[in-house]
Design a protein around this nucleic acid. Structure first.
Lengths: 348, 348
DNA sequence: ATGAAAGCGCTAACAC
DNA sequence: GTGTTAGCGCTTTCAT
């Protein structure tokens, strides 16, 4: 932690000007090879580490991309250091946001950007957001993390890409084709299994859920099969799912398959059905949506639709990088889901 | 992405000087409350987002901490975007570095620092390292990621904490007591299971691995049991582990237990043994080291030693924050491991 | 091919 | 309590 070594120090040591040092690093082809070597040697000997702050100031960009998540991504109590040696209790499995972050991280490395992690337990905490925004050339935010005003404010400064929101004018977004994914899954149930009595557990609270429902309905319509109502069930609210299952079991005719709009619901539904003495998929089939890890660990493996989470992170970065510096407003990326046939949809 | 709003714009709008704006943000108590309000209002209307670069330049610090991981933490091919829709093949579960990173992330948030992710597939890639180092006030590096020279160079500029390296003068470190952990596990195998023919899969590439091996040897020596050689196996290089297992199976006398120096290797070893028609732990026992999630999900649960990974990340950040600005040289943190008895070590 | 010099936006003495 | 001003380290015309 000796005094900082600057371009000037390197320049002096190499017997050139600071400009030459700068060029030697950024545009070596403009400088006589020998001079470049001299400069590099001097830099090396001095232990020169260019200041990103100074460079960022001069260039007007930082070379970093931020990812801003919030609250529901974090465990309660994360702010407090846990007792040493404790075995982590919750959040054993990577969640949606973790996988997205990983994708973003990989894509950043690939493109030579640094990734800054921001986030807060308080949704829409403007000062904190601004703090992050001031450090980066582009920002990834999860839908729901920020109010429209906060988003607008940041967007006025740097490109922002929103994940999982709805397509909106002036906003960069990475969308996932929930509709097609659910349609494919539903077609499988109809065509390959021959099911005709389907139940649908879920909600219509966000554009993503609406998309899933739309795909479901489309497949049924195309097959001329009657469309069941949405039985309310919310991921994270296990009770709602159990109530939904109970309602299904009270019905006159039991459905052949329960289509759930999230894996989380599906896993709870399976649990509830089995608790009621039914075999899954022997007596009744169940499907999910998302492709979270937990779904692959149940027996049999959950039939579901996998969202390309890592790819979402990558696409977000790609979109930002394309936007940085230019002012072009790219069309939203739309990524496709993959049908994952597991064992819970029945033995054909 | 309109023209950047600066302190000067805000100052003009608020009818004050740029210094007052600066103070209003950083030391509001120094400024008349009404003036502060005026400034804030102006900033808000203008959509002022302070530039971290400029601030960093002026202050001489960035407010960010970096974490530098490398190579074996990443999947091969990570540099290349995978085909869309591909189901992620490996790395489904958080690995050692992920959990450490998570701890660092949480601790950074708690302390108001941003976390920058850096890293490279090429170990010891100096330019890339420098690039990261120039952005942060302190750097966390995984042992083995950097040569001593590279480390020294960066350490001359900013505080660096090395994870899992060896205690060395002038270097900040967070150590984990690998030796004791492995010793405890080995004692369990000797004393509780009565094993006498043990095999050891692993390497000695970093101090951590050396520590594990040392603990293993110590336990055997204490019991007067012959010490087997290290059969080379590297986490992330599944083939090396499979070769190691094949070598064991070719030996005259099959070992009773295969002690692996990472969970990753242990899981592959189990797979290879079972593929060879052996039952684990029926025919042969296996143990790991690290305590990653994947080990808890196999059947039976992997017997291992858990490192306090999240705590390692937290401790690293804490150490850096303490060091930033001061020049004090704290003693290395040493964290303890926990023996986790699973089912793969045999049914006693 | 290289040097001189003017910023980039913010902070912090130091004046007033 | 607030304004003036001199940097922080790097990039980049514009000269030479």
């Amino acid at each position: 932690m000796a005094r900082k070594v600057t371009v000037y120090d390197v320049a002096q040591r190499a017997g050139v000007s600071s400009a030459t040092v700068s060029f030697a690093f950024t545009r070596p082809e403009k400088i006589k090879p020998e001079t470049v070597r001299t400069v590099m040697a001097a830099a090396d000997e001095l232990g020169y580490v260019p200041s990103a702050s100074a460079r960022g100031l001069a260039l007007g960009r930082t070379g970093a991309i931020g990812i801003y998540s919030y609250d529901y991504v974090l465990d309660p109590g994360d702010d407090v250091a846990p007792p040493a040696g404790a075995v982590p209790s919750g959040r054993l499995f990577p969640l949606y946001a973790d996988e997205v972050q990983r994708g973003a991280q990989l894509e950043c490395r690939r493109r030579g950007y640094a990734l800054m992690l921001g986030g807060n337990r308080v949704p829409d905490h403007l000062p904190h957001l601004i703090e992050v925004a001031g450090r980066v050339d582009g920002l990834i935010v999860f839908a729901g993390a920020l109010s429209a005003e906060a988003l607008a404010k940041v967007t006025a400064r740097i490109p922002v890409v929103e994940l999982g929101g709805e397509e909106r004018a002036g906003a960069r977004t990475v969308l996932v084709d929930n509709r097609s994914g659910m349609e494919a899954l539903t077609r499988h149930l109809l065509a390959d299994h021959g099911y005709r009595r389907l139940a649908y557990l879920g909600e219509l609270g966000t554009p993503e859920f609406v998309g899933r429902r739309t795909g479901f309905v489309a497949a049924l319509d195309a097959a001329g099969v009657p469309v069941p109502d949405v039985v309310p069930s919310h991921p994270g609210d296990d009770e709602s799912t159990r109530r939904a299952v109970a309602a299904l079991l009270r019905a006159e005719e039991r459905p052949e398959v329960v289509v759930c709009d999230t894996d989380q619901s599906a896993l709870v539904a399976i649990d509830a059905l089995r608790a009621a003495g039914l075999s899954v998929p022997g007596d009744i089939a169940v499907t999910g949506f998302d492709g979270i890890l937990a779904g692959r660990l149940v027996d049999p493996v959950l039939t579901t639709v996998r969202q390309p989470m890592e790819e979402v992170g990558r696409a977000a970065v790609a979109s930002l990088v394309a936007a940085i510096g230019r002012r072009e407003q790219s069309a939203p990326d739309t990524l496709t889901c993959t049908f994952l046939r597991g064992g819970t949809c029945g033995t054909h």
